[in-house]
Structures are given as structure tokens and as C-alpha cells.
Design a protein around this nucleic acid. Structure first.
Lengths: 140, 140
DNA sequence: TTTTTTCTTTAGAATTGTTCTAATCTATTG
DNA sequence: CAATAGATTAGAACAATTCTAAAGAAAAAA
């Protein structure tokens, strides 16, 4: 019985990105897709894969995260020196960064507005606008 | 400015930050102050110091940059994984990040406006709002 | 199918930026 | 000046990431 074909969508996305649907890529894509919007590091994803019984090396996790990012399936977010987060929400949005916990949180769409865009310097074009709101545990 | 006593201002700032005015700190502070608004990495500052004939270790450059940041004389900016920039302009402003050159450029005050601030999550308080506009060399 | 080609994965080494360590040195205090 | 608290240093250690080159798997050709 095969009422659900959970890999179909992921398979199509890999195919159109020109990536072979290997066991590792499919498993990682599934882990990412099934977990909803989140911000994950390479190490975290590697651990999750291990726990889920998926045998995959850390190097492959890094490769795959970058390939998925290049293919538009993920978005890389850098807010801390020496650590990259990969956001499963690729839509244009902004982030809170909780400095005490090292945690990223999406800013709800519409909760922040950049009302005036700067003009890019001569010879360059704007690629993205990202607002990072750094927060701390309240004093209370 | 008083060309006769070029270290006076820097000396006062160190003193009020509770930092001893050592040869290294004075020299680094002077290098930073004399060069106008800029975005510098620890390695870059270390190189500049060497070239200026200031003998200082890389470890001290890191220590000093962090101490100056804690004292409000510098602002740390993170836009790239694995590299910290220190901004000599501590006023509240935003940045272009030129992705092809790995270069930070201040966005002129008033050229970008965040018109609606998000509400910080329960139990946390906003510490800073930073807009990063990523740019690329134009296709033309 | 089987073979061949191309792409992928892997373990471990290498690299990079940064922080730590503990010995030495220097500014300040008494 | 001596005592002490703080600062500097070289080099080791570290963490995140990338590289390497050998072995493995998927796709294309025969």
C-alpha cells in the first residue's frame, strides 16, 4: 500500500536543481521538510540525521546544505561569528537573534517594515535586505 | 585637536573605561582614531600595527578590540560566517555588505528607515536593530 | 545487461579565525 | 623601591568549516 508518496515533491525539487536524488540528499531534505520552519546548523542537522538512523557524514551535510541553499531550498543566515544557520523558510523575512541563547526567531511578516531603501553604490545592485533585531533576556 | 598632545583624548577614554594606558592600547587606539570611519578585522589591524612599527601580538589585538567594544569605542559587526568586523563608527547606523569583495560600507544616515519596530518576544528586550543590505557587482 | 562515465560520499587531514594558557613583563600603589 | 594587580606574549588549543583523494553509487552508453 502506498497512499502517500512522501518523497515525490522533494525528488522533483532535487531534479530541477540538477542534483541526483541520493539516499543522503533525500533523507536530509525530508528531515528539513518535515520539521516546519526552523533555523538549523550543520552540526544540529547531522545529529538529527544520526538519531533518525540516517548514516551521513558531516562533510555531506555541509555540501548538501550549500547545494540546497544554491538551489533556493534554504536560506543561509549569519548573525554570529563562526556559525551559520540555515533557514527552511526561504521567503523574504527578518529575524530576532536572542543573544543569551544563541537562537534565531522569525519576525512575523509585517511586524517590521523597511520603508526607505537605500540606493546601492555605483556599479552594484541590491541582492537582499535583512533586518536583525538583537534581543536579550529582560531584566525583570 | 591639539597636535602637541595627540594621546590626550585616547588616554581619557581608556581611563574612564578602567583600562590601563599601555603602549599597545594607546598605539592601537591611535591607529583606529586616525584612520576615520572604517570596518577592520583583527588580522588587518594587526598587520597595520606591524607596518607602523608597533610591536603587538595578535592575541593582544583581539583582547583590545573586545575591550574597546565593551567600552563603547567600537562596534562589532557580523555579516559573514567566520569573520568579525569592528566598526569605528559607533553611532546607530546600517551597512551595505559587498558580497563579491567582502567589504562593509556604511549606509548614509537617513538613507534607510525601519518604520515599524517589531515587539520583542515575551521576557526579552530589544538591544539593537541592524539592517544589512547585501549587494553584488552590477551585471552592466 | 554490462560497461563506462560522471557525480557523490566519506574519513580524516587541513585551514581559518579566534580563544586559551601560563610564563613574563609593566603600570600602579603603598 | 617593592609589592601587587593587571597586561602582553608565543604558541597551543579550539570550533566551525573546507579540502583531499579514494571508494561508492547513479546515469548513460553499449
Amino acid at each position: 500500500m502506498d497512499p502517500v508518496r512522501p518523497y515525490t515533491e522533494v525528488l522533483d525539487r532535487l531534479k530541477s536543481a540538477g542534483l541526483r536524488p541520493t539516499r543522503q540528499r533525500l533523507a536530509l531534505a525530508k528531515l528539513l521538510a518535515d520539521s516546519g520552519d526552523r533555523h538549523i546548523t550543520a552540526e544540529q542537522l547531522h545529529d538529527e540525521a544520526q538519531r533518525a538512523g540516517v548514516r551521513v557524514s558531516l562533510a555531506t551535510v555541509y555540501n548538501t546544505l550549500h547545494q540546497f541553499t544554491a538551489a533556493g531550498l534554504l536560506r543561509e543566515v549569519v548573525v554570529e561569528a563562526g556559525r551559520s544557520y540555515f533557514d527552511t523558510n526561504t521567503s523574504n523575512h527578518h529575524h530576532f537573534f536572542h543573544q543569551d541563547r544563541g537562537e534565531l526567531v522569525d519576525i512575523p511578516a509585517g511586524a517590521v517594515t523597511v520603508s526607505e531603501l537605500p540606493v546601492a553604490p555605483e556599479g552594484s545592485a541590491i541582492e537582499s535586505v535583512h533586518v536583525v533585531v538583537r534581543i536579550r533576556d529582560d531584566a525583570n
